[in-house]
Computed example of a mutant assay.
Amino acid sequence: MNDFFNPKMAAQQERMARTEDMMRQRSKHMRVLSPKSGEKILELGSGNGIFARELAERVRPGGEVIGLDPSEAILEMARHIYPQGEFIQGDAQDLPFEDRSFDAVAAAQVFCFLKDVDQALAETYRVLKPQGRVVILDTDWDTLVWRTRQPELMARVMDAYKAVYANAYLPRTLPHRLSQAGFSNIKVKSFVVLNRGLGEETYARQSIGFATSIMEGSPEFSKEEQTCWLEDQEQLERNGDVFFSLNRYILSGRK
Rank of each mutant, 00 (worst) to 15 (best):
A120C: 10
P171D: 01
G49L: 05
R177D: 10
S218P: 10
E76W: 08
L33A: 00
L251D: 05
L95S: 01
V32G: 04
E152N: 12
M158E: 10
G197R: 08
T143A: 13
A108Q: 11
E237A: 10
E98C: 10
R24M: 06
D116I: 09
S179L: 05
E72H: 02
V65P: 00
D232R: 02
N247C: 10
S207Y: 05
D118G: 13
R177S: 14
Q12R: 14
E86F: 09
I250M: 04
S101N: 13
D116H: 14
Y161L: 05
R58D: 03
L42Y: 02
V164R: 08
I250C: 01
Q93V: 03
R254N: 08
E72Q: 08
F111I: 12
V135A: 02
R149L: 14
K223A: 15
P70Y: 04
S190L: 09
L44S: 09
K36Q: 14
G217K: 06
L194F: 12
L251H: 07
R79K: 09
Y165Q: 11
D91C: 02
V193C: 03
R126K: 06
A181Q: 01
L178I: 08
F4E: 13
L170T: 00
R126M: 04
A163N: 14
R133H: 15
R238F: 14
A155D: 15
S218K: 10
R147Q: 15
T143R: 11
E225N: 11
Q235R: 15
G253K: 03
V127Y: 12
H176C: 11
E234S: 14
E86K: 12
R196L: 09
D232G: 02
G209D: 08
E237C: 05
G85L: 06
N239W: 14
G197M: 06
P130E: 03
M77T: 07
G132W: 01
P171A: 03
S252I: 00
R79Y: 03
D69T: 07
L42H: 03
G45F: 05
E201I: 01
R248E: 12
S179K: 02
M154E: 15
A168S: 15
L194M: 10
G85F: 05
R100L: 01
F210W: 11
E231C: 03
P83A: 09
I186F: 13
D142H: 10
E225T: 07
Y165T: 04
S213L: 07
I81C: 01
K162D: 04
G132M: 02
G253I: 04
A107E: 00
G182K: 02
Q180V: 06
Q233N: 15
T124D: 06
F111G: 08
V105W: 00
M154F: 15
F97H: 10
I88K: 13
N195V: 01
F243R: 03
V59W: 00
E234P: 11
Q131P: 12
R196N: 09
T19S: 07
Y169A: 14
R126H: 04
S179G: 09
A11V: 06
K40E: 02
N185A: 14
K115E: 14
R177H: 13
G49R: 01
T227Y: 04
S213C: 05
P96V: 03
E224F: 15
M77V: 06
G85V: 04
Y203W: 04
S190I: 07
R238Y: 14
A120E: 05
G67Q: 10
K162R: 13
G182T: 03
L68V: 07
S34I: 06
E225V: 07
A107Y: 00
V145G: 07
A120F: 05
L170N: 00
